Simulated assay, not measured.
Amino acid sequence: MNNNNLRQPVLVGDIGGTNARFGLFDARSLTLEVSSVSTLPVAGYRGLAEAIHCYLDRMGLASDRIPASLAIAGPAEGQQLTLVNGGWTFDRDELLDQAGLSSALYMNDFRAQSLAMGFLADQGFVAESLVEVKSGTRLADRNHLVMGPGTGLGVAGLIKHAGEWLALPGEGGHVSFGPTDEVDEAILRWFRKRFPRVSIERILSGSGLEMLYQAMGEYEGLEAEALSAAAISCEALTDPDSLAHRTWQRFIYIIGSVAGDQVLTLGARGGVFLCGGILPRMKSQLQEGEFERGFLNKGRYREYLEAVPVHLCVASEPGLLGAALAWQQEQQAKTLIS
């Protein structure tokens, strides 16, 4: 889409701890389409304002003072906003002048992810967007769970009310890790030597995967060299007998266990949506059975969880789609109030 054809351009952003993704959509268009998507490294810019200004300058919109809808990896309340796993802190009002925006809507990144999951579900669970990980009987009018690892671990609830998807963002990635077997207990001991408190995000994240590889090596009595998350993932896919493969199997088991806990907390009989930057690359691993084993390992509530379907989001840039949907919701609410 040519930016000159956007009658009312709105900037959308999905700001994570590693990358900041930006795109544009036309607020006057009858169809929702995010275009001109670009990914900028957080470490390459002094702050969010500089990254936004750089993107808008590339798009030829730096002097137009357009509105923005920004999903950030952290709490979106208060005047000062901070990326929990990144280096940026900014004032929500000062950003407008610094970045050249007319207004800005801020939200937790998993509010955006959740709204995108609702939108994609309404499209009919198309395989190009949502892949089945575990079958079940979906109760569409009940709560849903949205979660996924990336630089951190995002968790949110989602429910449809009066025909509109409502996201229930939170900080569920920071609850404590609870071991379920001997291997988990060994992993917890390894992490406790390094952190005074072990949240599930310490394990279920990109950096967590790297540490889990070391923990699994110690548990098995193996010398585990320091590898990046990307290298561990590549080896896991190519060598089923490797420590990397077993590390990924345990990573997926823990994701399943945590997802099962969160489903019980939310009563998420509508189903689970897995998203984030890591899992789509490991789709085949997710479907091998370790996720389901961890998910169902809930004693008396196994039968309850057997009925809950689980899907993996493989759609392109759901965070930007969700930021656009959130902006549309806010505009509709303002129209109703006025």
Rank of each mutant, 00 (worst) to 15 (best):
P179W: 11
S135K: 15
Q98G: 03
L312H: 02
S129Q: 15
L188F: 06
V258A: 14
V10G: 10
R302S: 05
W165G: 06
E128D: 15
G47I: 13
G47P: 11
A127D: 15
S242K: 06
G271N: 04
M59A: 14
A162W: 05
Q331K: 11
E94N: 12
F22H: 06
R293E: 02
Q332I: 00
E330R: 14
A140S: 15
A20V: 12
F25K: 10
R111M: 15
P318K: 01
Y55S: 07
T151H: 10
S228Q: 02
G78S: 05
E317R: 05
E132V: 15
S338C: 07
L120I: 10
G289A: 04
L158D: 01
H53F: 11
I52F: 09
E223S: 12
L321Y: 00
R302Q: 08
R28Q: 14
V131K: 15
A68V: 08
G289D: 01
V12Q: 09
S176G: 12
R202W: 07
R269K: 15
S36Q: 14
I15P: 04
G270D: 00
A268N: 03
L209A: 12
P75H: 14
G221Q: 07
A162P: 00
L222G: 00
T265K: 02
D239H: 08
G178Y: 11
T180A: 14
A73V: 09
G172F: 03
K193N: 06
G299D: 10
S102C: 09
L120V: 08
L24P: 01
A324M: 01
D93V: 12
F195A: 14
Y106F: 14
S338D: 09
F110V: 13
F25Q: 03
L209G: 08
L30M: 10
L139I: 15
G78T: 04
R138Y: 09
K193P: 00
M216H: 01
A307Q: 14
R58N: 07
A127W: 12
H161F: 06
L237C: 03
Q80S: 13
I159A: 14
M59D: 02
H311V: 14
R302I: 00
D14V: 13
L48Y: 06
F273I: 07
A140F: 11
V310A: 10
G173Y: 07
Q331M: 05
A73G: 12
R269W: 02
R111Q: 15
A244P: 00
V34L: 09
V263C: 11
Q214A: 12
V263S: 04
L11Y: 10
A71K: 07
S242L: 02
A116K: 11
P75D: 14
